[in-house]
Amino acid sequence: MKKLFSFSIALFAFFFIASSSAKTIELLNVSYDPTREFYADLNPAFAAHWKAQTGDIVVIKQSHGGSGKQARGVIDGLQADVVTLALAADIDALHEHAQLIASDWQKRLPGNASPYTSTIVFLVRKGNPKAIKDWGDLVKPGVSVITPNPKTSGGARWNYLAAWAYARRRAGNEAGAQKFVANLFKNVPVLDSGARGSTTTFAQRGIGDVLLTWENEAHLAQKEFLTEGYEIVVPSLSILAEPPVCLVDKNVKKKGTQAVAQAYLEYLFSDEAQRIAVRHFYRPSSPVIALKYAQHFPQLELVTIDAAFGGWTQAQKTHFADGGVFDQIYAR
């Protein structure tokens, strides 16, 4: 017993020494699911850039999960220096529920504070056995559609709104769009909480004929499961997804990390970071880089959330709030 006790003391001492040996600036980036690989690449590049500029060592810690869930974590006290979430509504929540940021946060960085954009595409199984070409094919009987839960996942909300935008264009009115989206969700056998969970459901567990997901996530899944021969289907119309980034003012002020955190976000808009974004199948926001890598990204009609749905606050209230359209559709 005595031996065990002194052993555990020694173990503790070891851990505390081991964890306090290097003195560095630490940033916490709270992000959503599909950006894992992108930030794993980007963070060392920024660290090198910052070291060259100031001589300081910066270590960026990552936390990933469903976008809504991550925002909730920051509201509940997760000490994020920056948030890089799937949609503006989740960052708005930081202002609404906890006053962690100012309401005009999206004006503080170029391009609606979105350093990279993406869109929603389809991932289908090898040879596209169900012949899925466009949104209209998703409501056919016998087609099983995989998408995460719009209540918890940012990507899922983009999926939902893209489907809505397509259906409204076809039907010409909101009622027709609602009917179409309701029919689509009838074909969804399981709602995961995040985009990555859905990808795993589709690819690893082999459920579903088509996965609705981010363009970048679709490319990544295709790459990770090369032998499966998944195919990407680009629909006729989709939505321009702008995943924004934001400094968490209250946290950086307390931690004294404002300068480096701000530099980190600005770095996301640099040519170097934009090229890393392209490498991870995000559409770059820089027009120069976008033009250079145009052949990587198929052209399609993209509607924006502001033009088609009156902005995130409105879309959130109408569709995803408790008792909203999604609740009505899914309860049926």
Binding site: I75, D76, G77, Q79, A98, K254
Partner: peptide, 24 residues
């Protein structure tokens, strides 16, 4: 524990003021 110690919880504001980290 989130409800008790979280930033929006009962003890959250006091903990943040005194820089004590409990959850996360």
């Amino acid at each position: 524990y989130v409800l008790v110690f979280g930033a929006q919880g009962w003890l959250g504001p006091w903990l943040i003021e005194h820089d004590v980290k409990i959850i996360f």
